[in-house]
Every structure is written in structure tokens, then in C-alpha cells.
Amino acid sequence: MFIDIQNMSFSYSNSPANAVEDFTLTINKGEIISILGRSGSGKSTILRLIAGLEMPKGGSFSLGDKTLFNNHIFVQPEKRGIGMVFQDYALFPHMSVQDNVLFGLPKMSRSNKLKRVEEVLELVELEGYEKRYPHQLSGGQQQRVALARAIAPQPELILLDEPFSNLDTELLVKIREDLRRILKKANITAIFVTHNQNDAHVLADRIVKIKDGVIDQVGRPCDLLGSSTDEKGDIELLPEKELVSV
């Protein structure tokens, strides 16, 4: 398995209840996973744990052949080679679009760096916006810069927290398809969080439904279509492996 997460649990220091409990998931290289759940169900927390921004109470996680955490090891976020698009973008306000994207690029020649910036901005259709500052962009444009910035260093895994929340319908459809194309073309593995069934079904190879910090269901979009525990009330928790056949 390319990504192997086992029994990851976590609670915030100021509350005793587990925000995430026994999260277990394996992902293939190049797969696009969607984490679907209601507000407060723990979606962002799961991404932060994978990113290394929070330290899990227990469990293990490996990416490729590297163990990123278990009971003894904890790799700092900047050493993980994971990219992330934040729910509120977190574009650096004191840097132009170009500098934001340049910021995360690894050591290489200036001209190569600029070429890479050009490439990713083209990908998100923001050519010509290099010199703008974040506050001079619309919400959707900011989101695309955040995406470009995360993709630019060519991470092995990219995490996206509500990547479409600020786009109008037309742009949404386009970006959603573009994103899938971009990720597939670069063979980047991605986990994205959403509370929108539609996004999940269109973009994801596999959907993980979360409820109160616990995995509720896992399956391909076609398998999960229309089945929601919220309508049916309590459903027995299905161990992930039985459901998944990808």
C-alpha cells in the first residue's frame, strides 16, 4: 500500500472526547479519496493529523516506504513531503501570488523556479496574476492560488480542505474536473475534505464517510450513492476492508 493509516486516534488538549477515533485507511498511489462528513465531524482534524500538524495519541501512518508516525516516531510536517490546501487558504498576505508559489519550491535555479510558477499558474488558469497580492484576488482566485502553491513542490500526497467552498457553480464544475485531470496526470495522491456529496461523487475514486470522528462507511462513489446514515439512523459500523475493493 502506498499510504497506510492504522488506528489513528486524537483528542484536542482542551476536551477529553476523541475528535478522531481509530481511523484506519489504506490508499493506493494516485488515488483520490474524499472525506465526507458534516460540520464538526472531524474532517479537518484528520487532515491535520496526516499532515503532522497535530500529534496523534496513537496509531501509525506510513507514506511510500517511510513511516511518518507510530508509537516511537514523529516526523515534523515540513519533512513529510505532503502538500496542503487550507480551508481558509492561508495565503501569505505580505507576498505576491508569485512569491507565495515560489516560497515552497525546493532548491533549484531561479529560472527553473519561475518556470514552475508559470506552469502551475497556467494549470489553475491564473496566468498574468503573478504580481497581485492575495487581498486583490476574489475568493475563488485565492483558492486557486492556494492550490497552485500546494501543487508546485510536487508533493507525494496532497491534502485539500474544502477546496470548492468558495466557487460559483460554473467555476466549480470546471475546477473540479480540472483538478481531477491535474491530479491524475501528475499521478498525485490526494485526500480532500468536503461536506458536499456531489463534489465527492464527481471527483473521488473512493469516499470515506465520517461521523463524530469515526469512519462510518467507505466505498466507491457508485456504491455509496444515496446511502446516508443520517437518513437511516444508526447503521452498524462496517470495517473498512470488507467494503473496499479498489
Binding site: L53, P77, E78, I82, G83, M84, F86, L91, R149, A150
Partner: peptide, 9 residues
């Protein structure tokens, strides 16, 4: 956090 996710110390 965003900066560290970009691999910056």
C-alpha cells in the same frame, strides 16, 4: 502551518 506544509522549517 501552511509554510511548514510547503516544507519550510
Amino acid at each position: 502551518d501552511a509554510s511548514r506544509m510547503l516544507g519550510v522549517s
